[in-house]
C-alpha cells in the first residue's frame, strides 16, 4: 500500500522527467544527424555527393559564364543518411547536429545550404580550374618531399602531367640500342570527347 510513497518521494526529489523544451533547453547528442553543411574551401565540385545522395537533394549547376559552379542541398529533401559525408573525397561535406527544422510553408524553398564557388586560373597556363585543397595536396604529395604542394595544387591537371613528364624524363629506361624515330617519341593525339 505504501508503494506509492516511494514514487512520490522520488518525484519530489528528482522533479518531473519531462524535457522543458520548447519552453527551456533540451539536450542534443553531438553525433546527431541534422542539417548537412558544405565547406566551400574544400569542395571540388566533383559531384560524387550528388551521385550518392539517396533523396536527390543535392544540385550542382555550373555558372552560365563558366567561371564556377553553385552547389546546393535542399534541407526539405535531405534524408540525413550522411552518404555525402561518407563519399566526399575532400571532406567538404559535414552533418551538423542542428535539428531545428520546423518552418512555415512560405520558407519551404529557401531552406538551402548553398554556395557559389568560383574557379581560379591555373598558375602555368591560365585555364580556369578548381585548386586542390591544401590539406588534400599535402596528403597526396607527402611521399614526394621534393614537390611543393602549395605550388602544385594551383596547376591544372594538364600542366601537372607536363611537369611530371619533365621531372621524370631523365629516369625513363630505354631498352633498345637503336635510336627511336621522332614519331615514336611523341604520344598519340589525345582523344577528344
Amino acid at each position: 500500500m505504501a508503494g506509492f510513497l516511494k514514487v512520490l518521494f522520488r518525484n519530489v526529489l528528482e522533479g518531473p522527467s519531462t524535457d522543458p523544451f520548447p519552453l527551456g533547453e533540451t539536450f542534443t547528442p553531438d553525433r546527431l544527424r541534422g542539417r548537412a553543411r558544405i565547406n566551400p574551401e574544400l569542395c571540388m565540385g566533383c559531384g560524387i555527393c550528388r551521385h550518392a545522395c539517396t533523396a536527390g537533394a543535392i544540385n550542382i549547376t555550373p555558372l552560365s559564364d563558366g567561371s564556377g559552379y553553385t552547389i546546393a542541398i535542399w534541407q526539405n529533401s535531405c534524408c540525413l543518411c550522411a552518404s555525402c559525408r561518407h563519399y566526399c573525397p575532400t571532406g567538404a561535406m559535414s552533418i551538423s547536429n542542428d535539428w531545428h527544422g520546423a518552418h512555415p510553408e512560405k520558407e519551404k524553398f529557401s531552406r538551402l545550404e548553398q554556395h557559389t564557388i568560383k574557379y581560379e586560373p591555373c598558375a602555368a597556363c591560365g585555364v580556369l580550374m578548381r585548386p586542390v585543397p591544401a590539406a588534400l595536396a599535402r596528403r597526396l604529395y607527402s611521399a614526394t618531399p621534393e614537390l611543393d604542394p602549395e605550388q602544385i595544387r594551383h596547376l591544372c591537371p594538364q600542366c601537372r602531367r607536363q611537369e611530371d613528364a619533365k621531372r621524370n624524363a631523365g629516369t625513363i629506361q630505354v631498352t633498345t640500342t637503336e635510336t627511336l624515330a621522332a614519331r615514336e617519341l611523341t604520344s598519340a593525339a589525345p582523344t577528344t570527347y
Partner: peptide, 26 residues
C-alpha cells in the same frame, strides 16, 4: 502541397520529437 494547403513543414527522416514539438507549437 499539390493537393492540400500546407501550413507548417517539419523536415527530417524522421524528425526528432523535439522538432515535432517545435512544429506543433508553430
Amino acid at each position: 502541397a499539390r493537393y492540400l494547403p500546407v501550413d507548417v513543414n517539419v523536415p527530417g527522416c524522421p524528425p526528432r520529437p523535439q522538432a515535432i514539438l517545435e512544429g506543433v507549437v508553430l
